[in-house]
Design a binder for these strands. Structure first.
Length: 271
DNA sequence: AAAAGCCCCTGGATGC
DNA sequence: TGCATCCAGGGGCTTT
C-alpha cells in the first residue's frame, strides 16, 4: 500500500507528537518480515528524539539506537493517547509518555527493526542500496539521466526498483510516466535528456501532490490519526483499465511488468 | 552488474 | 451460502 507519500503522511501525523517522549513499554504481536533484533523490554526507558523518513522506511531515532519501521503492503500506523486491546493484526506497540504508536499490518510484509545506529549491519542491509530522495535537491537531471543510461530494463521497473530514486511505488510509477508522456515499457537507457527531465519533474510533481492530498487510499491506508487519503480520486491511469483517458479519451490499458500491473494511455504515452 | 522470478502473508472480490 | 481462484500499494533474495 504505502509509497513515499503515504509514509511521509504517516510520519508527519505523529513525528512532532512523539518527539521527546519516554518509552515505557513495547509489545510484539505475530512475527513481521524480520525480527525486531532486540528484546522489546530493552526499549523501555529510552527516549524518542525524532522521526525521519528514508525512502519508504521510517527511522525512529532514540537516545540509544533507532527503530526502522516499514509498512510493507498493508501496514498502517496509529498514534493515540490510549491503546485498545490489540486486534489480530496489531503486531507492534510502543507505549510512551506522550501517546502510543501501534503498527497494524494484516499481511505482515512490514517490519520493525532495531539497530544501534545507521552503520549497523541490519540498517545497512535495508538502507544501503537505496537511491536518492526524490523530493530533495540530490534528485537532479545529470545524475538521473546518467543512471538511466546504464539500465536496459523497462523504465517502469527501473523506477520501481528504488536503487536510482526511492519512494516511487506501483501507483506513482504509472502516474508519473503518464504525466511525462513516456511508455512504461520504454527501456530506461533509451530516454533522451529532455525526456528524462520530464520524468524527473513528473516524479517530483506526483509525489509532492500526493503528500499534499494526504496520500492515496486504495484499500487500507490511513495516517496515524485514522484519516484516509484522497489522491486516488484523481488518478490519471492507475486502476483505470478500459476507462477513458482523462486527457484524450482513449481507453487506458493494463499490462503486466514483473508480475505487477502497469497502467498507461496508448495515445498519450506513445514511446 | 543487471535483470528476471520467487516468495513472504492475509483478506477482499469474483465466479461457479 | 460455500468454496476455489485471483489479485493487491513492497522488496529482499536467489537464479540467470
Amino acid at each position: 500500500m504505502p509509497e513515499l507519500p503515504e509514509v511521509e503522511v504517516t510520519r508527519l501525523s505523529f513525528a512532532s507528537r512523539i518527539a521527546g517522549a519516554r518509552i515505557s513499554s513495547a509489545r510484539l504481536g505475530k512475527p513481521l518480515r524480520w525480527p525486531l533484533g532486540c528484546d522489546p523490554a530493552q526499549l523501555a526507558g529510552r527516549t524518542v528524539l525524532a522521526v525521519r523518513r528514508r525512502g519508504k522506511y521510517l527511522l525512529i531515532d532514540l537516545d540509544q539506537g533507532l527503530l526502522l519501521l516499514h509498512l510493507g503492503m498493508s501496514g498502517s500506523v496509529s498514534f493515540t493517547d490510549r491503546l485498545p486491546e490489540p486486534g489480530t493484526h496489531d503486531h507492534f506497540d510502543l507505549v510512551t509518555s506522550r501517546g502510543s504508536l501501534r503498527l497494524n499490518d494484516p499481511r505482515r510484509f512490514g517490519a520493525v527493526v532495531f539497530a544501534q545506529d545507521e552503520a549497523a549491519p541490519q540498517a545497512v542491509k535495508l538502507l544501503g542500496g537505496l537511491g536518492v530522495e526524490p523530493l530533495t535537491a540530490e534528485f537532479e537531471l545529470e545524475g538521473f539521466h546518467a543512471a538511466l543510461k546504464r539500465r536496459s530494463a523497462p523504465i517502469k521497473q527501473v523506477l520501481l526498483a528504488g536503487d536510482i530514486v526511492v519512494g516511487v511505488g506501483n501507483i506513482y510509477a504509472s502516474e508519473a510516466l503518464f504525466l511525462a508522456g513516456i511508455r512504461p515499457t520504454t527501456r530506461a537507457s533509451r530516454l533522451s535528456g529532455p525526456r528524462a527531465a520530464r520524468l524527473l519533474a513528473a516524479v517530483r510533481q506526483v509525489l509532492t501532490k500526493a503528500v499534499q492530498k494526504g496520500g492515496s487510499t486504495l484499500r487500507d491506508f490511513s495516517n496515524a490519526q485514522g484519516q484516509s487519503g484522497y489522491f486516488q480520486l484523481e488518478a490519471m491511469v492507475y486502476d483505470r483499465a478500459g476507462q477513458p483517458c482523462r486527457t484524450c479519451g482513449t481507453a487506458i490499458r493494463m499490462i503486466r511488468q514483473g508480475q505487477r500491473a502497469t497502467y498507461f494511455c496508448p495515445q498519450c504515452q506513445k514511446a
